[in-house]
Amino acid sequence: MSKIKPLEEVTALFKDGQVMMIGGFLCAGTPDIFIDALIDMNIKDLTVIANDTGFPERGIGRLVVNKQIKKMIATHVGTNKETGRQMNSGEMEVDLVPQGTLAERIRAAGVGLGGILTPTGVGTLIEEGKQKLTIGGKDFLLELPLRADIALLNAWKADTSGNLVYRVAARNFNPLMAMAADLVIVAAENIVEVGELGPDEIITPGTLVDIIVSAPVKGGL
């Protein structure tokens, strides 16, 4: 059965207050079609988990500018001054997480682990309130899994059963988030028939994907 759906079927699932993971690294691999829809519908009070908040006029940053995010969990927000302003004024809660730790917390949720132990952040502000374990004489922080209601992802190619392939730096958090949300929705730049993507080429198994929306890139690739 094809997982390709019109955008309207997806947007009907968006609700105020949801926890959303959004793929991408400074807009590479961010599904703009869903950002546009969230803005059009003015969905509010979101908790967004993503690498960064893009730029004020591009990517996830547009949700910040439109004041739709209540809490942001990200690694770096320096490319979007509005995020810093809302963080300082208290309008938006921002939880800054080291990038490798964010990746592993999402992966942990997706692969059924109760947490991960990382040396990153030991001896810094990051360790506040966290359990520290000493293993083999080395200190590690216990970091807990991160899950979402919805993952909004971007793929270069999808087949109609949801198997996904990403392209170079547009992969980033997308395959990790595909395992860590109740509902996984993908904007696919190219859609192909089942069988056109080889089993060794597919990065995200279609079984993890709920819905595909066609989102061709202008000019194409």
Partner: peptide, 24 residues
């Protein structure tokens, strides 16, 4: 010890990948 991500009182951009890149 290294400090390169946070100046209290100024806008804090976040550590991005810096903390992970130096530990290993």
């Amino acid at each position: 010890n290294l400090a390169n991500w946070n100046v209290p009182g100024k806008l804090v951009p976040g550590m991005g990948g810096a903390m992970d890149l130096v530990v290993g």
